[in-house]
Structures are given as structure tokens and as C-alpha cells.
């Protein structure tokens, strides 16, 4: 009942405003000196602190129905998801698969070499499965059985 109608004291509003101005000064001051890698995290941390102050006090989420806080939190989380999952791609673009030590010409030459070697193989050398042997072998008795066994085991290795 009282949740929606909490009157935030003027003192609190002015205090929050003061903190916001101070934080703005701090982030402006820090921007003038070189913080190296910390520059971005620090600036974003200060901005987030300011945003939290605005949300909690000016927008009164601190005194409000929790469902509104949940709503807002869900929104922020999904912004995070959007940024994070997009960066999973853009920050690692080309990580594997589409880069190679070899040049395109080298890969092509290698493929041609393999193709050439395969074409040079005789039908006998290509036999692997039992079915290959049944058609090819004129001698059904001993040959088929032995070859079939060999084919089976080599297929497993």
C-alpha cells in the first residue's frame, strides 16, 4: 500500500544530487590523467554507480514494489547478454577454421597431389569392405574369407 506512495525527503534528493555531481567531477578529473587499461573499467564503474543512484532514489526503486526492480534488472541483464554474446563473435573473429598457416596455393597443390595419388591406385588397393571383394574375386572359397577378415580389422584401426 505505502510502497507506491513513499515521499522521498528533500534532504535525500539533494544528497543524491550532490553525490552525482561529485562523481561527475571525479570521472572528468580521472579522464585528464592516463590510467592505461583501467581507464574504461573505471569510467564505466563510475557511470554505473551514478545510474544506480538515479534508479534507487530518483526513480525510487528502493521504496517501490519489488516487481518493478525485477523488471528493470531483467532489462539490464538482457542488454548484458546482447553485448556479451555479440563480443563472443567479434572479439574472437577468425579464431579457428578460417585461418591457416598455409597459403591458398599450397593447400590447393596439396589437394591436387592427394587427388593424383588416389587416381594412381589400382582397384585392388582400394578394396576395404567385404563387398568389394565378392565382386572382384574370381576365387570365392579361401580368398573371400581371408580378405574379408583383413578388411574388417583394418577398417577398425
Amino acid at each position: 500500500m505505502s510502497q507506491g506512495h513513499h515521499i522521498i525527503p528533500q534532504r535525500v534528493l539533494l544528497g543524491v544530487f550532490g553525490s552525482l555531481i561529485v562523481l561527475t567531477g571525479v570521472t572528468y578529473g580521472l579522464a585528464q590523467i592516463n590510467l592505461g587499461v583501467l581507464e574504461v573499467p573505471v569510467a564505466l564503474a563510475i557511470a554505473s554507480t551514478k545510474a544506480v543512484l538515479v534508479v534507487m532514489y530518483f526513480m525510487a526503486l528502493k521504496y517501490d514494489n519489488p516487481v518493478n526492480t525485477l523488471t528493470f534488472a531483467v532489462g539490464v541483464i538482457f542488454v548484458g547478454i546482447f553485448i556479451t554474446f555479440t563480443l563472443f563473435d567479434t572479439a574472437f573473429r577468425g579464431d579457428i577454421g578460417n585461418v591457416s598457416e598455409q597459403t591458398v596455393r599450397e593447400i590447393q597443390r596439396e589437394e591436387e597431389e592427394l587427388q593424383r595419388r588416389q587416381e594412381a591406385l589400382t582397384p585392388e588397393q582400394l578394396r576395404v569392405a567385404p563387398a568389394d571383394f565378392e565382386n572382384a574375386e574370381p576365387d570365392p572359397e579361401a580368398g573371400t574369407g581371408a580378405d574379408a577378415d583383413r578388411g574388417g580389422s583394418s577398417g577398425g584401426s
Binding site: F78, F85, D89, A91, F92
Partner: peptide, 17 residues
């Protein structure tokens, strides 16, 4: 909301994603 990249497997996005 966390699966959209499955439309992009062959787009050239990173393997990690």
C-alpha cells in the same frame, strides 16, 4: 535469447561463439 547465433554457423562468426 542466448541461441541466436545458430543461424550464423556458416557466416564466418568466430568458432567460440
Amino acid at each position: 535469447f542466448m541461441v541466436w547465433g545458430h543461424h550464423m554457423f556458416v557466416s564466418g562468426q568466430s568458432a567460440v561463439s
